[in-house]
């Protein structure tokens, strides 16, 4: 099975180390996320070279945090391979889910509630936006916050499962020590009532399909959904 993970390496040396360790852990594909403001073409080329050097499938994405940035992404979507949104308040979550150009949204729970409801789950399914769960968020919280966070996550998972929105669980590592074994990520979903088969899909197929579709769209041969130049 082709396991994939989403990571947030701060610099290129760290990224190299992470990819080497990730290979040992059994990951076949990584999606490196940069901040939207810091991202440029020079970084993109350097990261791609690292991917080729280590012979690992490396996708490059950007992280968006505000309304304005979502609007900018909408206009310039063809410049980016993968776009994720860091949620955190209900209106931003809703805006991200309403935007078809967004690939994934994570950090849904707010301080007051789970930041996600049945209506949003239906929209996520309709617009094919992935619901992300960052394992790092779980570890960084203190005890009291973690209790609320886990409760909110459980509700979100339940809704996403019921309305068939696609879920992705990732380590969200910033250095090599924060990487997690795929089996550990799977276990989190199994404990929340998912089958082993379903849980494995959330680490592999859901993310892989999205990345491959994006790559097809970015190629010159792509015209519109269902239409592409063959010869």
């Amino acid at each position: 099975m082709k396991f994939s993970d989403i990571i947030f390496a701060n610099d290129l040396d760290e990224l190299k180390e992470m990819l080497e360790v990730g290979k040992k852990l059994g990951f076949k594909r990584f999606c490196q996320i940069f901040d939207f403001k810091k991202f440029n073409e020079k970084i993109e080329e350097e990261v791609k070279e690292i991917g080729k050097e280590l012979e690992i499938d490396l996708c490059i994405g950007v992280e968006v945090k505000t309304f304005n940035q979502i609007e900018t992404i909408r206009r310039k979507r063809k410049n980016f391979e993968f776009v994720i949104v860091r949620g955190g308040n209900v209106s931003l979550n809703r805006k991200a889910l309403d935007t078809k150009e967004i690939d994934l949204i994570y950090n849904l729970p707010t301080k007051a509630n789970s930041g996600f409801n049945h209506i949003m789950a239906k929209i996520a399914r309709k617009n094919d936006v992935l619901i992300g769960i960052n394992f790092r968020n779980l570890l960084e919280k203190n005890e009291n916050e973690r209790i609320k966070f886990i409760k909110a996550l459980k509700l979100n998972l339940k809704l996403a499962k019921k309305y068939k929105a696609k879920i992705v669980v990732f380590s969200g590592a910033k250095n090599k020590f924060e990487l997690k074994d795929p089996k550990i990520l799977i276990s989190f979903l199994v404990m929340n009532g998912f089958d082993l088969k379903e849980a494995k899909k959330c680490i592999s197929k859901n993310l892989n399909e999205k990345i491959e579709e994006n790559r097809k769209r970015l190629s010159e041969k792509w015209i519109m959904p269902g239409v592409r130049v063959i010869k």
């Binding site: 040992k24 852990l25 059994g26 570890l139 020590f177 074994d181 089996k183 550990i184």
Partner: peptide, 16 residues
């Protein structure tokens, strides 16, 4: 096992 990241100041990575 996912919660174990360091033991006595030594940072570790766990592979199953």
């Amino acid at each position: 096992l996912g919660f174990i990241e360091e033991i006595n100041g030594k940072k570790i990575i766990i592979k199953v």
